[in-house]
């Protein structure tokens, strides 16, 4: 608990600094907003041209889009220190962390906290809200039809759990990327395949992709487990079971694995100094 308090203190100091430069903060928040909105505009344009996507309606895809965007941007708010770790390393900030008597992972996590990323969170949440406004009446009707109000609650809870699981996966990817930053600064773009690429991929239901891609994003980077599989249950697709609400747990397992990789890389960095 003391660690949690220190994390909040560190984050607080970072936030304090950003608040003192309000003009910058507002600018960056709007910038973040505009990036997320342009992605949303892309989806909207395609829907207005084609009407539906592989049997999913606009609201259903919007729900998927909202979960992924919210998860991604929350992960960016929290784990930004890992996302921008190559800078932390290049500026010698990591060396400074090593001469402090605290875990290096903890310090990297606490080193950055970007309020501006909340601009993007707001787009994700807005998508979720507007999708829910369109979908919840149908879900409520489902719940009444089977006589279980709990079904509606379970669906909404699953949605929150999916977002948390997605956040765990994105954080895990940032941590993997940071581990790679120890070895190379040049080829970090490859991590974008997983982070940005994962975000773009997972904003649509995975069924629209080829089999190889579906498998990669289910068994290697388990976006399918926080997104597609539980989504089928949330949307009440025939053949989907309530226990698929547990799938987002796999996201947390991914995060744990990434953490192990980071610890090994940080140890290696200290021994080679490269």
């Amino acid at each position: 608990m003391r660690a949690a308090r220190l994390y909040l203190r560190c984050a607080g100091v970072a936030v304090q600094g950003q608040l003192s430069r309000r003009y910058n903060l507002v600018l960056l928040a709007f910038g973040q907003l505009s990036i997320a909105i342009s992605a949303l505009v892309g989806v909207t344009l395609l829907f207005s041209r084609f009407g539906s996507l592989a049997g999913y309606s606009f609201s259903e895809v919007l729900l998927c889009f909202g979960v992924t965007q919210t998860a991604f941007s929350l992960a960016e708010v929290v784990a930004r220190g890992f996302d921008s770790f190559s800078q932390v390393l290049a500026q010698g900030e990591f060396d400074r962390m090593l001469v402090r008597p605290r875990g290096s992972m903890f310090q990297v996590l606490a080193s950055r906290m970007e309020l501006a990323r909340l601009g993007r969170v707001s787009v994700g949440l807005a998508c979720l809200a507007s999708a829910l406004a369109a979908l919840v009446p149908g879900w409520a009707a489902d719940a009444i039809a089977v006589g279980q109000a709990g079904l509606l609650v379970l669906r909404l809870a699953t949605l929150a759990f999916m977002t948390a699981g997605g956040m765990a996966i994105f954080s895990g990817i940032f941590i993997l990327g940071a581990s790679l930053a120890f070895i190379t600064t040049d080829s970090l773009e490859i991590v974008n395949v997983l982070s940005d690429g994962g975000r773009e991929t997972a904003q649509y239901p995975l069924t629209i992709y080829e089999r190889a891609m579906r498998r990669f994003f289910t068994f290697v980077v388990p976006f399918g487990c926080v997104n597609y599989l539980p989504l089928e249950f949330v949307l009440g697709r025939p053949g989907s079971a309530p226990w698929s609400a547990c799938f987002p747990l796999v996201g947390f397992a991914f995060l744990a694995a990434s953490t192990a990789v980071w610890n090994a890389s940080a140890r290696r960095y200290v021994s080679t100094g490269s």
Partner: peptide
């Protein structure tokens, strides 16, 4: 490290020092 800065850039120095107290 003479060429690096360990103080938090945008906050009063005393806040940086207080935070270091907690870190240490």
């Amino acid at each position: 490290f003479g060429q690096r800065c360990q103080l938090w850039w945008d906050v009063p120095v005393i806040d940086s020092l207080d935070l270091l107290r907690d870190i240490y």
